[in-house]
Amino acid sequence: MKTQKIIDLLDEFLGGERIKRTRREQAVLDLLDKLERKERKLLEKLAEPHDADEIRQLNLKLQVNRAHQEKARQALESWAKTGEAEKSDDGVAI
């Protein structure tokens, strides 16, 4: 924890917003991974017999899950574009 804090402070001190963003990108990637696993589970559940209300619930969860995945991909894409711009400014790849 202390090491992480020192890295964060150094990062901030040295103007390393990129590191933070990379961590955030990683967090979104982790979430995306989690969402994809969840989607597979939901699809497996949907293949089992259920009553109408349960099917509706599972479908809703699936829809919402996919909407979150879409948001995650959009965010990653947008950050990637911003990263390209920075690269061209300071020549540092993110």
Partner: peptide, 10 residues
């Protein structure tokens, strides 16, 4: 960081 990532996906 993870909390912020969750908010991004909200």
């Amino acid at each position: 960081t993870h909390g912020a990532a969750e908010r991004v996906l909200g």
